[in-house]
Simulated scan of single mutants.
Amino acid sequence: MTEARWTGPRGADAGEWLPVLDIVEPARQRRLTVLVRLLLLIPHFIVLFFLYIAAFFTTIAGWFAALVLGRLPEPVFRFLAGYLGYQTRVGASAMLLIDRYPPFALTPPPDYPVQIELRPTELNRLAVFFRLILMIPAAVVSGLVTSGWWALSFIWWLITLILGRMPQPLFEASAATRRYEFRFDAYFMMLTPAYPKGFFGEEALSVPEQQPRSATRPLIMSGAGKALLILFLVVGVATNITTSATTDWSSDSTDGW
């Protein structure tokens, strides 16, 4: 699978094509790398900080270009796609979805267990103009489910450390969380005109039997996996309410003094 290719529009249905996140699920994970996973990823977090700054200003430039051209210029598309792929690989490693260390590269080797596919297409200028408004519902869902996962991350880390692997329902829910965030980011950066979809994965009956499968292409979720995904959302809501209430209380206390 290619990381991102500038091949132009793919026909009338191109706008309905969703960005693909392909994760090869590891059979086992090394407990030592699970134990110190976030420490190992610190160099990547530093690199991502500087890449984020560059991607932020590139996205702004791309927004103006897309309004004029109806698409992202090829160099802008390639850089943003490379950044998003890198961010997604590091995020997948941080969420314990893979055991292989991410490469310091915008384009991974072909055998790396996390790959993305983005197809450049024409963009609706009106949708580009109102992007910040249109993305609000997806931003809320993505933010809540991600914060919910991280609020419970110690539990997922402990389970994976003890078992040497992620239980299948937990892998499904974590992969769905990572994939939705990836699709939201792709929409925000105008790498796709398709609004984020497939939060609960694909229906098994809609997938042709002869289609090759990876862990997330397609992402077929069990009932337990969907229940965990809902748990992430609920915990995300509770976490945000608690944080907001605590902030308000601290502010009131400070004003009282």
Rank of each mutant, 00 (worst) to 15 (best):
M1Y: 08
R5T: 09
P9V: 14
R10K: 10
D13C: 08
A14V: 09
E16I: 07
P19N: 11
P19W: 06
P19K: 00
D22Q: 09
D22C: 02
I23K: 00
P26R: 03
A27H: 12
R30W: 09
R30K: 11
L32A: 15
L32F: 12
L39T: 11
L39C: 11
L48I: 03
F50G: 04
A55V: 01
F56Q: 13
F57R: 05
F57W: 12
A61G: 12
A66Y: 02
L69S: 06
R71N: 09
L72Y: 02
L72G: 07
P75L: 01
P75W: 03
A81H: 04
Y83A: 00
L84M: 05
Q87L: 13
Q87T: 08
Q87A: 15
Q87E: 13
R89Q: 14
G91L: 02
A92R: 03
A94Q: 07
A94D: 06
M95Q: 12
M95P: 07
L96A: 03
D99M: 01
D99E: 05
R100H: 08
P108G: 11
P109T: 01
P109D: 12
P113K: 04
E117L: 15
L118E: 11
P120E: 15
T121G: 13
R125S: 10
R125M: 06
A127Q: 10
F130P: 10
R131N: 14
I133L: 10
I133N: 03
I136P: 06
V140Q: 07
V141L: 12
V145L: 05
A151E: 07
L152S: 14
I155P: 05
W157I: 00
W157V: 00
L158Y: 10
I162V: 15
I162T: 05
L163V: 09
L163C: 09
P167T: 00
P169G: 01
E172H: 05
A173Q: 01
A173D: 00
S174F: 00
S174W: 00
T177Y: 06
E181I: 05
F182M: 12
F182I: 05
R183G: 02
A186C: 04
Y187I: 00
Y187F: 08
F188M: 15
F188E: 03
M189D: 04
M189T: 15
M189W: 05
P193L: 07
K197M: 09
F199N: 04
G201E: 01
E202R: 08
E202A: 13
E203Y: 10
E203T: 12
E203D: 15
E209K: 15
Q210A: 14
S214R: 05
A215L: 02
R217K: 12
R217M: 10
L219I: 07
L219N: 06
M221C: 02
M221S: 12
G225P: 03
K226S: 06
A227G: 12
A227H: 03
A227M: 00
L228Y: 15
I230F: 03
I230Q: 04
L233Y: 13
V234K: 01
N240A: 07
T242C: 11
T243A: 13
S244Q: 07
W249F: 12
S250L: 15
S253G: 15
T254G: 08
D255P: 06
W257K: 06
